[in-house]
Amino acid sequence: MSNSAHNTPAAARAASTIPDLVNEKGGMDDFLKGLWKENPVFVQVLGMCPVLAVTNTVTNSFVMGVATTFVLVMSAIMVSATRSFIPKQVRIATYILIIATFVTVADYAIKAVSLSAHRSLGAFISLIVVNCIILGRAEAFSSRNGIKDSVMDALGMGIGFTFAILMLGVIRESLGSGSLAGIPIFGSNYEPWVIMVLPGGAFFVLGFLLLGINAMNTRRSGVKN
């Protein structure tokens, strides 16, 4: 394709505001940055819907994290492998097609493995399609890097995302139901904070986690300066 002027679509525009940290060391750094420094949830604040919606139990969080990582990695491979054939004008449409395909695959796979996991996540598996993290990585990274780097990047982002929602899941389930992955941990005398597993609790926990991270960063930069 020629370098004709093209439109940056809205979704890509959201993605392009992410600092485009492509580095020369490749591989390992692409992987590691997603875990903390550019954590999709805590730092980039992307993909908030599943983060809030499915973190009421650890099991739900884990399934959602694995499914999202799967879609991230598979679409990174596809986008990266086809990046030189796809005309600029239709690339977002192509990415969405690719992502939607793998989300449907993940949806059926979860249904085949465990119906109860599928029932408790409901439509949120399908909604991985519109998780901005995935389209964001496809546009900002996979579309301009080789397969190996893209996979490392996607894995890092996926594991960073899984880590973040597991953290929320552990806090919400342990306080809200007194259990972890369905196994009671606080004994029968524990009176659960029901609010934690209700929608309000999701907002509170994430709000306070972000507050904590802000406080930590402020303190750290205060020490440095």
Partner: peptide, 18 residues
């Protein structure tokens, strides 16, 4: 300063949700 931005919006959203 530390609560500015997304953090306070989320906490307000929590109260609204309740």
């Amino acid at each position: 300063g530390i609560i500015k931005g997304t953090a306070i919006v989320l906490i307000i959203a929590g109260i609204l949700s309740m």
